[in-house]
Design a protein around this nucleic acid. Sequence first.
DNA 1: GATAACCCGACTTATTAAGTAGGAATCAGG
DNA 2: CCTGATTCCTACTTAATAAGTCGGGTTATC
Lengths: 133, 133
Amino acid sequence: MLRLSARTQYALRAAVELAAAPGAPVPAERISAAQHIPRRFLDNILLQLRRAGLINSQRGPDGGYWLARPAAEISLADIILVIEGVTQENDRFPGVSEPLEKVLGALREHQNHLLAEITLAHVAGGSLPDLSR
Amino acid sequence: MLRLSARTQYALRAAVELAAAPGAPVPAERISAAQHIPRRFLDNILLQLRRAGLINSQRGPDGGYWLARPAAEISLADIILVIEGVTQENDRFPGVSEPLEKVLGALREHQNHLLAEITLAHVAGGSLPDLSR
DNA sequence: GATAACCCGACTTATTAAGTAGGAATCAGG
DNA sequence: CCTGATTCCTACTTAATAAGTCGGGTTATC
C-alpha cells in the first residue's frame, strides 16, 4: 500500500518549511524545531536535496537553506523522487494474474500524476488543487 | 510510494489462480508452479488466507484450496487487508506542512476505493472495470 | 579567532521481509 | 489399515532496509 518512509516525509516537511519562508536562508536548526525532525538526520536529508539541486545552502552565521526554484515550480513528486530514487521494479504476474499488472500500473500512474500536480506552493499556501482527480 | 510486499503479491496471484479454477480444489503445488511462488512460502500464505476465511481447504489426495465466496465477491482490497493487516499510522504534519495530511489521505482513499472495486472475477476474467476513476 | 552554520562518510541498531525447516494431522484408495 | 498425497502449524534463519547517530571537517561573518 501507500507508504512514505520517515526520511521522505521529513524531506517533504522540510521543503514545505522552506517554501513558507522565502527570501532568507533558513537554518537546519529552525526546521528541526518546527517540524520535530532529529537534527543530525535532517542535515543528512537536506544534503541530499541540495545535491539533487532542489535547494541551495549557505554556510556560516546567517547561513541556511532555501529553495533553488520558486515553490510553485517544485512538486511533491520532485522531492519524493530524489529521496526514494527511481523505483525500477517490474514484477511479473504470470498467466491468469497478468491483469494485476494493469491495476498496479494504473494505481501508480494516478499517484504520480497527483503528486506531480501538487507543488510546495500549494501546500505551504494551504490551498490545494482538486484532489478528487 | 505504492509498494506491495512479495507476500502480498503472492497472495493476490494465488487467489486469482483459485478464481480461475472454480469448482474443484487446487493443490498448492499447482499454484506454486503456475505462479512461480516458493512452495513452503505459499503454504504459509494460503494458511493465512484460510484463517481469515477467504478460502477453504481440504487435506489428502484430491485436496487443495478454493475460494470461500464467489470470485465476484472478493476484492483485491480484501486480500491485501488480510495480508498486510490494518495500517494504523497517523503521522503528524506540524505547522505549515499540515496540508500534506490531506494529500496523503486523498491518495490512500483513492487507492482503497479502486482496490475495493476490483474483484478476483475481474482479474481472472481479464475484464477490468474502468481504471481511470 | 570565536562562533554559527553547513558538509560528509561511516557506523549502529531495530525492524521487516522473505523465505526455510521439520514434522504433525488428515484423507482417499486399495 | 497402510500408503501416499496433501494441508497444517510453529519456529527459525538470513538479508535488506529504515532510522538514526557520530565525529569531526569546512566555510563564512563579525
